[in-house]
């Protein structure tokens, strides 16, 4: 393999915006919709996912040359499930209230496509440093995606952000935003917005060039 693909730094940056897992690749949709009714659960979720992603990428990259493909998937799953269990127990022990709010969505990280995709696409072929940079970038991108949706929903739904009031007292809380339909509507509109901004920028770039 002559062409080694993007460097570690490029991968790190790629994960955040150009290949944002939420808006660009539409990966990991369950947590994106389910835990974004407040900024705090969204950030906790992003943290837990980041922990699992970084650890899984690290282990996968360490053993990348030692395994045949069909065994590899098995080992990925084993790795991911182990780290998710650890993350889940830590949440239960140190943030019991938050663990109750997140409920089944913490163990559902096991089947989060972002982690399997990053392990398979990147970490199983790259050295440890690159794999870690990739995981870090992806986690930040995912956190950004979750935080943006959660902020919109929490502000419109309750008039507060992280419990602190941002909109005037007179704001009629849009209850629907913190309910399931609000998740679909917010993500749909934000996706449209990102697409639209991307298209507009491309157009502007084309005119200049």
């Amino acid at each position: 393999m002559v062409d080694s693909g993007p460097t570690a730094l490029e991968r790190f940056i790629n994960g955040i915006l150009p290949e944002n897992p939420t808006y660009r690749q539409l990966l990991g949709m369950c947590p994106t919709l389910a835990v974004t009714n407040g900024l705090k659960p969204a950030l906790t979720m992003a943290g837990a996912t980041a922990f699992v992603l970084i650890c899984a990428n690290f282990i996968t990259s360490l053993i990348r040359n030692a395994l045949k493909p069909h065994l590899r998937i098995l080992v990925f799953t084993l790795t991911i499930a182990t780290f998710v269990t650890i993350a889940d127990r830590f949440l239960q022990a140190f943030m019991p209230a938050m663990s109750k709010v997140l409920g089944p969505y913490v163990p559902l990280i096991i089947v989060n496509c972002i982690i399997i995709a990053r392990c398979e696409v990147c970490a199983s072929k790259q050295p440890v440093g690159t794999a870690l940079a990739d995981a870090l970038g992806c986690s930040l991108g995912f956190a950004l995606g979750l935080a943006s949706i959660a902020s919109v929903r929490e502000i419109l739904g309750t008039g507060c952000l992280l419990g602190a009031r941002v909109l005037p007292e007179a704001w009629p809380n849009w209850g629907i935003m913190v309910l399931p339909p609000g998740a679909f509507l917010t993500l749909g509109l934000l996706l449209g917005l990102v697409e639209w901004a991307g298209a507009a920028r491309k157009k502007a770039g084309g005119n200049q060039g």
Partner: peptide, 24 residues
Amino acid sequence: LILLLAAFFGSSLAGVEIALKPRI
């Protein structure tokens, strides 16, 4: 290698369980 990994994961799970169980 797989046996080794399984042992590693198993012992880390056991460690977490022993350390955090009382708290949970």
